[in-house]
Design a protein around this nucleic acid. Structure first.
Length: 263
DNA sequence: AACCAGGTTGACG
DNA sequence: CGTCAACATGGT
């Protein structure tokens, strides 16, 4: 593995927080701070040194987009500062960027996330790619649509196996058209995704935020419920935008606070 | 041994 | 409309 290529990074960006904040499940960090993993079916090694990204893949343009380096996070982060809790979250992890993951991969990943924990989600996805993907890439809907609940048993995904299969069948058949969903207003996009068994409001919002880069999508999971109950009893402020980015900061922040045992 | 994990479903009031 | 157990699996 050689990190022969480089990409200049905007101030404040954090590769570690971006890849470890729970929005993706296929990156692993070794003891030297080198991340190895996949974006879709593209494998790479990444490492951040100050304001530079070192990478093993010559297609730096792809990674510039994947890591969302061209968006206006510094401006957004400043605006978030008007809220006390968000200001603390930005201070803690304002270097996170919302990855431009593939819609299908994000959809399946968050179907798997339901009532599950992150280490096990990672394991199931690893097996999914290892058993059914080409070169360990993420398997297509068409590929998975040819499987059965029984043959998906190797994933040890539990009750989610039939959800994965249902998603594969509906996407492969075109009943759920991911390309079409990308252009729909948020509520209609959510409704379209929820035709799939195992896709409720939270999973749909995750797919839209992480897979379709819809930065106004706002997934509310157990952690975000905690945040909303504790810091926003009057409701989450309407002026916050993009809400999905704020959500990601708050999610990572509250998990950190919880791991500190106090707060 | 219970309880929990980036929820969703179907049943029941 | 709201509540609630069940759902597979693996880790405390």
């Amino acid at each position: 593995m050689q990190l022969s290529y480089r990409l200049p990074l905007p101030a404040g960006f954090s590769l570690r927080d971006t890849l470890n904040c729970g929005q993706c499940f296929r990156w692993k960090e070794d003891s030297d701070g080198v991340f190895s993993g996949f974006a879709g079916s593209r494998k790479a090694f990444l490492q951040q040194t100050e304001d530079l990204l070192l990478l093993s893949d010559p297609d730096v343009g792809f990674w510039q987009s994947y890591l969302d380096l061209d968006e206006e996070y510094p401006t957004w982060n400043d605006s978030f500062g008007a809220d006390e809790t968000l200001r603390a979250a930005v201070q803690f992890c304002g270097g996170i960027r919302i990855l431009r993951q593939e819609p299908w991969e994000a959809l399946v990943s968050f179907i798997i996330s339901a009532n599950n924990n992150i280490p096990r989600i990672q394991g199931i996805i690893q097996r999914l790619c290892g058993y059914f993907g080409e070169e360990e890439g993420f398997p297509s809907a068409e590929r998975l649509a040819g499987e059965s609940v029984e043959s998906l048993g190797v994933l040890r995904a539990g009750f989610r196996a039939r959800y994965i299969l249902d998603a594969a069948e509906k996407v492969a058949s075109g009943q759920v058209d991911l390309g079409e969903i990308a252009a729909l207003p948020l509520p209609e996009a959510e409704a379209a995704l929820r035709q799939i068994n195992g896709v409720g409001p939270k999973v749909a919002q995750c797919a839209l935020l992480y897979g379709f880069h819809r930065l106004e999508a706002f997934p509310v999971d157990t952690w975000m419920k905690k945040v909303l109950f504790r810091y926003y009893p009057e409701g989450f402020p309407d002026w916050v935008s993009p809400r999905g980015v704020a959500q990601q900061y708050l999610f990572h922040y509250i998990r950190h606070l919880d791991s500190q045992k106090e707060g």
